Computed example of a mutant assay.
Amino acid sequence: MKKYKGELMNSIRLIVTDLDFTLLNEHFELSESTKEILSRILESGVEFVPCSSRPLSEIPQWLRQQKKIHWIVTANGGLIVDNQTGETLVSNTLPASKAKALLTLAEPMNPHWSCLIEGHLHSHLAILDDRKALKIAGSYLENILKNRIWESGKDFLDTLPDAQIAKIHFITSRDFPEKKQALIDLLSQEKGISLTSSHPSNLEILHPLANKGDAVRWVMQQLNCTPEEAVACGDNANDLPMLQAVYHSVAVANATDEVLAMARHHALSHREDGAAKMMEQLLGQA
């Protein structure tokens, strides 16, 4: 097993990373090379935490099976889950009544929504009806067909009055960015929520306290870890709070200009296992 200088000097103790378009490849999978690197990192004793907008049910199974991964951050920081017990340790969510009001407000503009409830995304069937226009195909389509709960409309929330919604996720068309901006303009007037995005074609509504930065700070507190001892990797706007929370901020080559501008380190793209290779490089140089 490869030894890292960081293991001996204890200079890097925590690595957190986004998944889609960062750690996962263009097929939304962990490559074999990335798995090998992550296995070495876990064996070295460095804490590794996936930090994703995905629900727990859509976190790659390989990660969930790793006994040395103690925490998984989902819903853009809205939920922190114990990977061994499944217990939710941190929860910042919206009530069902608030979620339905937001869906009602936005429905004339965009019916392509999902609500994250208890680790599963409940998605409007309009997403499947309009999948060609939304450019949903291939492995992504296969994944959502397998993992989502499909709803005919927002009224399903009336049957779950006590449900806590970790996020609302709107899909928009990449061909019409002005429609996404109009949705942002509409929803930004609402109180008691925050808006973020993990991809040019989506918009996510969260509890005001739900963000990857606060989630990473919670993990660092559990480990008594300083920002200088932590690495974070990301590609999009929702990753900025996480990257700002640590010293070793990493942007993959396919990241947005904003992320590239603020990151301390630049890695190869997600198609080239850039995040995993940079993790290994930083541990070797520590």
Rank of each mutant, 00 (worst) to 15 (best):
W150I: 10
S201G: 15
L195H: 10
L183W: 02
P208M: 04
K154Q: 13
L206H: 14
P111Q: 07
S114P: 00
E190S: 09
P111S: 08
N147K: 15
K167Q: 12
S152A: 13
H122Q: 07
L195V: 05
A126L: 10
S201K: 12
L160G: 02
G192D: 05
I127Y: 06
H112W: 14
I127N: 08
R148E: 10
H112P: 11
K180R: 09
K132R: 14
R174H: 11
F156P: 06
Q164D: 00
S139G: 07
S173P: 04
F170D: 07
Y140I: 09
P161R: 02
K167V: 06
G119A: 08
S201P: 01
F156Y: 09
S198Y: 03
N147I: 00
K146M: 14
R174D: 12
N147L: 12
P200H: 06
I117V: 14
A133N: 14
L183H: 04
I205L: 04
E151C: 13
K132T: 15
L186V: 02
I165G: 07
S198P: 02
K167I: 06
H124G: 02
D185T: 02
A137H: 15
K167N: 13
Y140Q: 01
W113M: 03
K167W: 06
K191R: 11
Q181V: 06
I205A: 00
F156R: 00
G192W: 06
E142F: 15
T159G: 06
I127H: 04
L141V: 03
P111C: 12
S201H: 13
L128Q: 05
I184R: 01
H169A: 09
N147E: 13
I136S: 06
L186H: 04
D129Y: 13
L116V: 01
D155V: 11
A137L: 11
P111E: 04
K154C: 10
S152Y: 14
Y140F: 08
F170P: 03
L186D: 03
P177C: 05
Q189I: 01
P208D: 02
L121N: 15
R131T: 07
I171P: 00
I165H: 01
G153K: 09
K191S: 07
A137C: 11
K154M: 15
K154P: 11
H120V: 15
